Amino acid sequence: PTVGATAEIVEALRTSGACFAPDLATATRRLQCDVEEALWDGVARGLLTADGFAAIRALVSGARSSPRPSSSVSRLRRGSFGRSNAAGRWSLVGAVDAVEDRESLAEVVADQLLQRWGVVFRDLAVHEGGCVPWRELQWALRRFEDRGLIRGGRFVAGFSGEQFALPAAMDGLKATRRQERTGERVTVNACDPLNLTGVVIRGPRTPAVRTNTVTYVDGLPEGGTTVGP
């Protein structure tokens, strides 16, 4: 942006470095509500980032609110944002250098997927997205297998193509198959990464909306999902 609150905040951060939201309000002479909206606009554009999780928690929980101008002015004059959703220091997102070693990048991403899921295959990798195509991840996983770090095989039924798993994940799958079903129920928000309906679990996809939930019974999704208002 070249004009507006977001542009002013970007320029202030470029000049002064990382700043707290009240400092940005002072530098730009804008109200709290204007600064917060500009910060979130900068985040959406990939220009700004925060050094803590308070702002992210506020965004995910839907706790953002638009304070009344009068209260914003009073807090601004006191030099405090109170219970602001723009907590923490804000800074510009640094420029990302082009990666020349694609093999190393693919191995890093493949290892990240293995640590996250234990078992990796094409459908899951595509669901995760990312900057590395499956064919490069596949070669990286094959190199891991050649080094004896992981195993290739058929670990998850219903999916074609190669699958790769960590030894610990294989042991966990075997132990789970031997366990008796107890009717254990686990409910997760539909935005949770464990919402694998329509991805690993066959059937319709439960939309990743904050008001939706998915309930698993013994690891399998219950007949329906809870849809919020």
Results as ranks from 00 to 15, higher is better:
Ser80Leu: 07
Trp117Ala: 09
Ala95Phe: 08
Leu137Met: 03
Leu105Cys: 07
Val99Lys: 08
Ala140Phe: 01
Leu39Tyr: 02
Val99Arg: 08
Arg68Asn: 13
Gln115Gly: 11
Val43His: 02
Arg75Ser: 13
Leu47Lys: 06
Leu31Trp: 08
Leu141Ser: 01
Glu103Ile: 07
Asn85Val: 07
Phe81Asn: 12
Arg30Trp: 04
Asn85Asp: 11
Phe121Asp: 03
Arg57Pro: 09
Arg122Phe: 01
Leu141Thr: 01
Arg143Val: 07
Leu105Met: 08
Phe81Pro: 08
Ala58Cys: 13
Arg64Trp: 07
Leu39Asp: 00
Leu47Trp: 05
Ser71Asp: 14
Trp134Thr: 00
Arg135Thr: 08
His127Arg: 15
Asp101Ala: 05
Ala87Gln: 13
Val43Thr: 05
Arg77Ala: 15
Phe144His: 07
Pro69Leu: 14
Arg142Val: 11
Arg77Trp: 09
Phe144Thr: 02
Ser70Gly: 13
Val96Met: 09
Ala86Glu: 03
Thr28Val: 07
Glu100His: 15
Val109Pro: 01
Gly130Tyr: 10
Ala38His: 00
Ala86Leu: 06
Ser66Tyr: 08
Arg143Thr: 12
Ala58Leu: 06
Ser72Pro: 05
Ile56Trp: 08
Trp90Thr: 01
Gly62Tyr: 01
Ala86Cys: 04
Ala140Asp: 00
Arg142Gln: 14
Arg57Glu: 13
Asp111Gln: 15
Ala98Tyr: 12
Arg68Gly: 12
Ala87Trp: 02
Ser84Glu: 01
Leu105Phe: 10
Ala86Tyr: 01
Asp34Ile: 05
Val99Gly: 05
Ala140Arg: 00
Val108Thr: 13
Arg30Ile: 03
Cys131Asp: 15
Trp134Ile: 03
Leu105Arg: 09
Val108Met: 07
Gly42Lys: 03
Arg77Gly: 12
Arg30Pro: 00
Phe144Leu: 07
Gly94Met: 08
Arg78Gln: 11
Leu47Gln: 10
Val73Gly: 04
Trp117Asp: 12
Arg122Met: 04
Arg89Gln: 08
Phe81Arg: 12
Arg143Gln: 11
Val120His: 03
Leu113Ser: 04
Arg122Val: 01
Ala95Glu: 15
Arg102Asp: 05
Gly62Lys: 05
Ala110Tyr: 02
Leu124Tyr: 06
Asp101Cys: 03
Arg64Ser: 07
Leu48Tyr: 00
Leu31Ile: 09
Glu103His: 08
Leu113Ile: 02
Glu136Lys: 10
Glu37Tyr: 10
Asn85Phe: 07
Gly130Asp: 12
Arg116Gln: 13
